[in-house]
Design a protein around this nucleic acid. Structure first.
Lengths: 220, 220
DNA sequence: TAGTGCGCCATTGTATACAAATAAAAAGAC
DNA sequence: GTCTTTTTATTTGTATACAATGGCGCACTA
């Protein structure tokens, strides 16, 4: 391992380094919702000046991970039950669109990727490694979204999912039977493979909604 | 008229003043797609330092109105045919969701607002004032979106529409019969009034698609 | 003791100076 | 004459200094 934790960051503008670092800390719970992000403290901790910290925070705001109040600084975005509902509804709307488009465009190779991705997710579920589970689940859904072929929808979904990732992560901790998610994925894959787009849409809707309900219960 | 062009800007952070000013110039065509935004030139023109200019540009990036390349500065976002398609598809997906939700939640008062908004749009069409037409059309659609009651969907739609506003604006210039839009709005209002959500969704889809095709023809 | 006003301190907002990098122009080699 | 190399100028990236604001505590008053 080199001097830098992540070699590819070596030539990135500092604002992006700050962004990635803080993003990581927010998504995986090191920085908690509501926590205040103070520029001077962060610039000292990260070893850069205030300027790239400010700009990194602006990038986080763009992703919806922090909220800024003029003269009152930046806070890690927390979420109300209503906001969570809204985000999940938006996600469901866009992701059902995506799975429908995916059915129309999927190739054999992509279909195999999808199967493989769910196999990896199943593996992660077996190990009960939370981070691994979250990442492989995201990867699975991303293949569907990529296959849909709409870059803007993809961009919006990435942002929406990040905004609730932290809560989903917390929720997965306490899930009794995560293998159910694997089975749900399998059903979706099957429907896509059979080009039954209506069924795939309905299964995905249920898949998202069941998670929505669980997360919602946690936050309420 | 006071010293400031817009009094409410007087106490706003400069980054927001810069943001609003440049946003206006981009949306209404003073700054053209692809044009480069250079920090020093802008800071001189707007009479502020580079810092708020940089931050204002970051806000424009968040709205998708400019794109930034590291070390190569910011450009007014231009759009390829594919990107336009993607944005319009995303908009259609979210706005048909919105009109469906709107049907379920609309009150009598809101319904009257909707009628009134389309009356104002019809007025603007009569005068052929392009800016007025664009603004009242936006207002009409926004009532539907507001009534749907999903803040996140609203936020996403505002952003998506801004990204194509400029092209829509150009397209309206050359439209032979803009009164057709008024009639389409009327049909949508009627369907909402009769709580026929399926019909409203279908009409809105067609309304958006017909514009999409026209804009698409212009850009291709 | 409760309430109000004043002043200090921490923090964000803005300006500016300097460093680094890119692109364009000029010089040189073949 | 064209291609390569070097130089130079312009522009963005980063650091830092200073200004302005808002919150908080303390003192003063009723």
């Amino acid at each position: 391992m080199g001097f830098y934790e992540n070699d590819e960051d070596a030539f990135l503008p500092l604002r992006d380094v700050v962004f990635k670092q803080l993003r990581e800390e927010i998504l995986y719970g090191k920085l908690k919702p509501g926590e205040r992000l103070m520029e001077i403290a962060l610039s000292e901790r990260l070893g850069v000046s205030r300027t790239p910290v400010r700009e990194g925070i602006r990038l986080l705001e763009k992703e919806g991970l922090v909220v800024m109040l003029p003269r009152r600084g930046a806070h890690v975005a927390s979420i109300t039950a209503k906001q969570l509902e809204d985000v999940l509804e938006a996600r469901r709307t866009l992701e059902t669109f995506a799975v429908n488009a995916c059915c129309a465009r999927i190739t054999h190779a992509r279909f195999e990727e999808l199967n493989e991705a769910n196999r990896k997710f199943a593996e992660a579920v077996d190990t009960r490694d939370l981070r691994q589970m979250a990442d492989t689940d995201t990867a699975f859904h991303n293949i569907i979204i990529d296959t849909a072929g709409n870059e803007k929808v993809k961009e919006l979904l990435v942002s929406l999912k990040e905004q609730i990732f932290r809560y989903k992560y917390e929720f997965m901790k306490e899930m009794d039977d995560p293998t159910r998610l694997v089975r749900e994925h399998d059903q979706i894959v099957k429907a896509i493979g059979e080009s039954r787009s209506d069924k795939a849409v309905e299964l995905l809707r249920m898949h998202i909604d069941s998670q929505a309900i669980a997360i919602y219960r946690k936050i309420k």
